[in-house]
Nucleic acid binder design. Structure first.
Length: 302
DNA sequence: CGCATTTGACCTGCGC
DNA sequence: GCGCAGGTCAAATGCG
């Protein structure tokens, strides 16, 4: 199961709710015209409140489902990681094409200290490099800055024009924690200049700054540390593909089709998606407005 | 003045 | 060995 399918299922639930909430919306107008019928208005208000409570319960259930799903996905991911580490070790033990340069050094055993260091360092590098994910962010094509707001702080350390793509590729390092090994490459897509492709290498060894603020008691809903002129770019959805290298094509295919559900980006996207599907639903907003106004009127009449 | 960004130079791996 | 391309470094520059 991929995220889009269960996000869609959330959408379906939202639409199901909206179907049930159609009646209040239709009677909303009559509330204003036949305002004297207090009894029916109160009945409707009660029904709406009931409906709201039901929606809240449903929301809580969905949140529970989401949490359970995230947990099971995390468990699966750690299993996959263990498997991949095993296959990496096996690859290291067996002679491969990558070993060509090192095998060329075999006749120079006098440099054993340096080659030993390399052989120790290389698997570590490969493990770091194995944790590669890719994010596609839709931005304004006229926006020349290759900045992808993902909740982390990045320091640009280089830019290069590559052969396969006329638009420059920018290189970033995570600057929030000095010891964080994560790097990011950002380049516009060749096919669609509106789409920016961000490739992440490695894993953060710290919480995202936004989450750190949240845990430290900040009441802000979403805080991106890039300054006031840098809200979360929600001009389009960010799709994150975990491109973690894998020997098995089957596992790889499944893994690629499965975005990082436990990543803060996805979680934020889900929250935004759920919030927007609710707020964009005219039936829901109308019902909500009717319920609130109903309560206000009933409070006034008391 | 300090920090982030820019940009040319340099390093490294790979193919021929 | 040489050239190419991608990646990184570090001095220069800009900005708040």
């Amino acid at each position: 199961m991929n995220s889009s399918s269960w996000v869609d299922s959330l959408d379906l639930n939202a639409s199901a709710r909206s179907l049930r909430l159609e009646t209040p919306k239709e009677t909303n107008g009559s509330n204003l015209v036949v305002f004297g019928r207090k009894l029916s208005v109160k009945e409707e208000t009660g029904a709406l409140v009931e409906e709201l409570n039901r929606v809240h319960e449903e929301n809580a259930k969905l949140t529970q489902m989401l949490t359970a799903m995230c947990e099971s996905y995390t468990a699966l991911q750690s299993q996959l990681r263990d498997l991949m580490n095993k296959t990496n070790i096996e690859k290291e033990l067996s002679p491969t094409r990558k070993r060509k340069s090192e095998s060329g050094n075999n006749d120079r055993n006098s440099e054993s200290s340096s080659t030993d260091e390399e052989s120790i360092r290389k698997p570590r590098e490969e493990i770091i490099k194995a944790k590669i994910s890719r994010a596609y962010v839709r931005t304004d094509a006229s926006d020349a800055s290759l900045v992808v707001k993902d909740g982390y702080q990045w320091r640009k350390y280089g830019q290069k024009v590559t052969r396969d793509n006329p638009s420059p590729r920018a290189y970033f390092k995570c600057s929030f924690a000095p010891s964080c090994p994560v790097k990011k490459k950002v380049q516009r897509s060749v096919d669609d200049q509106c789409v920016v492709v961000a490739t992440y290498e490695g894993e953060h060894n710290h919480l995202p700054p936004s989450q750190m603020e949240a845990t430290s008691g900040s009441s802000r809903l979403s805080s991106v540390p890039a300054g006031p002129a840098a809200p979360v770019k929600s001009s389009g959805p960010t799709i994150t593909l975990n491109l973690t290298k894998s020997k098995s094509g089957d596992v790889e295919a499944r893994n690629q089709s499965k975005p990082k559900m436990d990543s803060p980006e996805i979680k934020q996207y889900l929250v935004e998606h759920m919030a927007s599907s609710l707020t964009k639903d005219p039936n829901f907003t109308a019902a909500l407005a009717a319920a609130i106004s109903g309560r206000m009127f009933s409070a006034k009449s008391n």
